[in-house]
């Protein structure tokens, strides 16, 4: 089995601080602050985010088979249960962003408990601040531009529909290699 964090305590803290800042300032592209070698199909940042947040309380859904080595690695280091039911997933991992169509398949939480919702971690073909979508909302002073390579137009449209149901919703991290960007449900996305 490939090793996980060098230091469970300090690597998870470093990665979490980058996630906290990314979630607080949506659209800002961030590194993870650590070096992590993940199994084949897992991007470095996806592995780091999941090792930081997963444990026995957080069912994981993924667009892979349960016996895939990537899932085995995540489960070995975190003890997270694997689920095939989208609504039960606390975290969902997409290794191929072209297959993410309908975020509403996952759990958006309830009006009373919007926090009990799935967080998506989506691997992309690249993220930069080119003008594909314009982001506004909490954490963004005026506007931020973001370009997510490989994401489908359907997905962007479906996310806009889902966001109208605020405060319920789905929060997302888009990942490429060792970089990631957060899009909480409050972030408005418009096509440029």
């Amino acid at each position: 089995m490939r090793k996980g964090f060098d230091s469970e305590v300090f690597d998870s803290q470093t990665v979490f601080r980058h996630m906290l800042t990314a979630m607080a300032y949506p659209g800002t592209i961030s590194g993870t602050g650590i070096d992590l070698f993940c199994p084949d199909r897992l991007h470095g940042a996806a592995g780091a985010l999941l090792l930081t947040l997963l444990d026995f309380e957080t069912p994981l859904w993924a667009d892979m088979e349960e016996n895939a080595p990537e899932i085995g690695w995540l489960q070995f280091h975190t003890g997270a249960p694997f689920t095939r039911e989208e609504k039960k997933a606390k975290f969902a991992l997409f290794t191929d962003c072209r297959t993410v169509m309908e975020p509403a398949l996952f759990n958006p939480g309830t009006v009373a408990s919007p926090d009990i919702s799935t967080t998506l971690i989506i691997q992309t073909k690249g993220i930069d601040n080119d003008r594909q979508v314009r982001l506004t909302g909490p954490g963004i002073e005026k506007e931020v531009f973001l370009h997510i390579r490989g994401i489908t137009l359907d997905f962007i449209t479906n996310r806009m529909v889902l966001n109208q149901a605020y405060p319920t919703g789905i929060d997302m991290f888009f990942v490429h290699a060792d970089q990631f960007v957060a899009l909480p449900r409050t972030t408005k996305m418009e096509l440029c």
Binding site: E8, V9, S12, Q13, F16, M19, L20, M23, A24, T52, L53, L54, D55, E57, T58, K90, P114, D115, S117, T119, P138, G139, P167, G169, D171, P184, R185, T186
Partner: peptide, 24 residues
């Protein structure tokens, strides 16, 4: 302990995603 931190960290991220909502 690290598991308690993980649980609190998940709550912090949800709290930032839903401003003003009290996450248990």
């Amino acid at each position: 302990d690290e598991q308690s931190k993980k649980m609190i960290r998940r709550a912090i991220l949800k709290a930032l995603a839903i401003p003003g909502f009290q996450v248990p």
